[in-house]
Design a protein around this nucleic acid. Structure first.
Lengths: 138, 138
DNA sequence: TCTTGAACCTCTAGTCACTAGAGACATTAC
DNA sequence: GTAATGTCTCTAGTGACTAGAGGTTCAAGA
């Protein structure tokens, strides 16, 4: 059994975040000492590692809730889990696409200006003011 | 002179968002009719287009504030504007890098499961539970 | 001119996923 | 026993909006 601080160190999840996850129902309510402090065991550690990993991958708290529910009902098909992962993947790909467009435009914008002109001629400001200067669509 | 709704239509920025930008000081306080309704002119339209464009590119409200301040002092060098754009670019590139790692892992995860097994053997859940199954680092 | 209905006003509160701080109590090491 | 560190709950703040209540104003048609 270890304290919340210890759990925090092992999982690299901050202490208030652990309490927050408990409040949100992602973590079961921890056992307490006589002095009301939380104590965790291996199961708690594993559960929190799972949550952290899923968060790192960009899953929302809600999605993680669903995944945990699936874990707790092993009789159900894992189709739902796959669905969640796939929709997450679609999301990530969409984000990458958008960011690449932004990268292109920002590269163009920040190259256009040598940092010595006056603001009136600043390419950064001009580009932002006038969408027509873009390499199209976003 | 046109109303906030008209401005919203032309810029595709939602009405409450326009009011929010005004509150945040990105937009000057609009002129009002005798009945206290906001009225905008071409300058307001251009300013809001600038803001929207910058937001689309992921600039924070704070960064946009700085850019606007620069616009209003055309005597200053545009070095700062370039700095802001470049730091935005660095940010975007970092995000792309991270997202590509996630994409890789999510692809692997969602392919591992055919959606017919039971949850106990579900590759999605197993992958999330065990970071060791990852292609390393994140 | 009157009426109707859409658009507008302000204000408060909610979203997401935390983070920060206050003030009090518990645990641990010496 | 004492001091330092850790933990507790609670409230409020973050960023960039979004939603809703309850009231007012505007513009168009009869």
């Amino acid at each position: 059994m270890f304290s919340i601080g210890e759990l925090s160190k092992r999982t690299k999840v901050k202490v208030p975040t652990i309490r927050y996850y408990e409040e949100m129902g992602l973590l079961a309510e921890a056992e307490r000492t006589s002095g009301n402090q939380r104590r965790y065991d291996k199961a708690g550690l594993e559960r929190l590692s799972f949550i952290r990993h899923a968060r790192d991958l960009g899953f929302s708290i809600e999605a993680i809730s669903s995944l945990i529910e699936l874990q707790e009902h092993p009789d159900r098909s894992c189709e739902t889990a796959t669905d969640i992962a796939v929709s997450q993947l679609v999301d990530v790909r969409e984000k990458i696409k958008r960011l690449k467009l932004l990268e292109k435009e920002l590269t163009r914008i920040s190259k256009g200006c040598d940092g010595h002109g006056i603001s009136e001629d600043c390419y950064v400001l001009a580009s932002l003011a006038d969408h027509k200067l873009c390499g199209r669509e976003h």
